[in-house]
Nucleic acid binder design. Structure first.
Length: 272
DNA sequence: TCTCGTGTTTCTTG
DNA sequence: TCAAGAAACACGAG
């Protein structure tokens, strides 16, 4: 589920517990999400300390704590929730941080998510060394062009999914970007005209900014239960999931095909 | 019973 | 060494 804006959406659900003392950490240490994590160290370090800051970069999130860094990636089916203090963890709730007032829950039934812990004040390499976000000033037109040329033989859809270059963009966001730029997802990255490339660059930045703003619940006092409801009908997002959906621009039935190894949805005639 | 999947890593091939 | 595609991971939904 979680791409850029959704990651922010879920991260914010833990905000209520930030700056509250953690009394107890419950977790399932044998689960795959802890494959890069010393769970004994995590439990010892977080118990009786506080999360100080919630950070999001692409699909990665980090919670800076008093004496370490808690890193979370939601994978395919990960979610963060906030529950009452007496919450009993359900089957797929693999990590729960209990404070005096609430339970901060990480659930992930498919276990593609990942929890990391790095002791100390200094940010770990996995947090500090990340590629610039498409919305950053460092994400220049030149950088974008270089990426497309280097990956020129791959379909543009596949290139947009590379986290080393486009942190936060996932399957539906790549489709949204290409739909707005009116580019077919199977076009080769190296074969776009200079003009088309410029349009795509602008749409990449636009969709990332919109997703953060809308799904992050900017301006709302409270997040709704579902981030999908925050997205307007004018987005491809609201139409791409089921077979038989139609293009919000042309009304024509959307096509679904596997491109770059992923289910891809696009609008024939509109995208060329 | 069988296929599919909103993600990432690792393997294989060229 | 690099790029591209496929497989693997785990498990519920349809």
């Amino acid at each position: 589920m979680p791409e850029l804006g959704e990651v922010l959406f879920f991260a914010k659900r833990w905000d209520a517990g930030v700056r509250e003392r953690i009394q107890h950490v419950a977790l399932h240490p044998e689960k795959r999400i802890f494959r890069e994590c010393d769970t004994t160290e995590l439990q010892r370090a977080l118990t009786d300390s506080k999360l100080r800051e919630r950070l999001v970069h692409g699909k990665q999130m980090a919670f800076r704590a008093d004496n370490g860094w808690l890193g979370i990636h939601l994978g395919m089916t990960g979610k963060l929730r906030c529950e009452p203090r007496k919450y009993e963890p359900a089957k797929h709730d693999h990590m729960v941080l209990y404070t005096a007032r609430r339970a901060l829950v990480f659930e992930d039934f498919r276990l593609f998510g990942r929890v990391r812990f790095h002791p100390g004040q200094e940010p770990p390499e996995w947090w500090a060394k990340q590629p610039p976000m498409p919305t950053d000033a460092a994400f220049t037109r030149e950088r974008f062009s270089d990426i497309l040329q280097r990956r020129g033989k791959a379909p543009i859809k596949a290139v947009l999914l590379l986290q080393a270059y486009f942190p936060g963009i996932g399957n539906w966001m790549a489709d949204e970007v290409l739909w707005r730029a009116r580019i077919r997802p199977d076009r080769l990255a190296g074969e776009l005209s200079r003009r088309k490339e410029g349009e795509l660059y602008a749409k990449v930045r636009e969709v990332c900014a919109d997703a953060m703003r809308l799904m992050g619940g900017e301006g709302l006092d409270e997040l709704p239960g579902n981030h999908n409801d925050l997205v307007p009908e004018s987005w491809l997002f609201r139409h791409r999931w089921r077979e038989g959906g139609t293009c919000p621009e042309t009304g024509v039935q959307l096509r679904r095909e596997k491109i770059g190894g992923r289910t891809t949805c696009w609008s024939p005639k509109w995208q060329r």
